[in-house]
Write a protein that binds this DNA or RNA. Sequence first.
DNA 1: CCTACCGATCGGTAGG
DNA 2: CCTACCGATCGGTAGG
Lengths: 199, 199
Amino acid sequence: MTEVLVRSYANGRARRQLILDEATTLFGEVGYRAASLREIAARVGISHPGLLHHFPAKQALLLAVLEHRDEVDAQRFGLDHLQGVELLRHMVDLVDFNATRPGIVELYCVLSAESTAPDHPAHAFFVSRYARSVAQCAAGFEGAQAAGLLRPGIDPDAAGRAFVALTDGLQVQWLLDRDSVDMATVLRATLAQLVVAGA
Amino acid sequence: MTEVLVRSYANGRARRQLILDEATTLFGEVGYRAASLREIAARVGISHPGLLHHFPAKQALLLAVLEHRDEVDAQRFGLDHLQGVELLRHMVDLVDFNATRPGIVELYCVLSAESTAPDHPAHAFFVSRYARSVAQCAAGFEGAQAAGLLRPGIDPDAAGRAFVALTDGLQVQWLLDRDSVDMATVLRATLAQLVVAGA
DNA sequence: CCTACCGATCGGTAGG
DNA sequence: CCTACCGATCGGTAGG
């Protein structure tokens, strides 16, 4: 009886994870507003009321998708434990890894643009996410500056903002024409212009 | 009779322009897929079949909006007649001007992301638009290099791609938090790192 | 340009 | 009391 209950919970978690995966894909493909719960549910192999049993509303599903993705990536790359130039290099590595999963890149690319509308359900999420990303990269450049690795005349805050912006812009170009764009290479070349050679 | 006919044509063109303006705004607010012809028509003050009299389908309206915008901006800033660093500086000026019209920035930001999907009606438009923009900026950096204004070790092609990417990424950040982001300042600071001082 | 519609599909919820 | 759904349908809206 305990066995049955445990398996039931496990099945529920597995199903929930499958829903998150398919929602991630479809939100990336067509955006939040144009994605339908029926299409996500169909890809999972359940009905859409079945989906709404796991996530009470479409908005809840969206926020769960975004938070789950950031959580997994933060753990995988341990960005919170890094500083200075090392942090920036790991972010380039993350971009390089993202080139193996276009669905994730699409998700953030499409949703960040869509969420610029103030009434979008993910607006607050992306406002705070960008504030955090920019501050993190700015701290990376400040650390580089403190270590004497930053070229003179560079403002760490502006460089942090530019680094995040450059990453985002490259993702759009890469999604539009994957064969012509190597995100990590352009990112590393630009980074090399900001930190002293050999750093 | 001629008078009436002329006025009729003029009214038709004015109406068509009004539709383009309102479509530009709404496409920017919610994207192409989530924008409805009924909403655009309502803002213009006509019915949605009335709108379809001027533009036979939703796709035709989208492409008319995109082409009209690029045409107007190309004429206003005369980007086609510029070369080298001058071209790049004028693009910064265009970004600065765009900070006075968030609707236009939203339009390109949201639609470029949405159009990364291969079956999106504006996909081909944005693929060729980016190829053109990147080539134009790369030519700008090549001109700077030929004039001895480019810092050594910089690849003009990568710099051109990065310049476009940086511009796009800054627009997302600006739309999310307009008070905290000055696009032109970050863009000029980055440009100053690539071309020699005082150029 | 209008009203009056179509096939379909939307997010969400009812009872079972 | 719990979970994991189903078939059917709610009020509204999509492009045409």
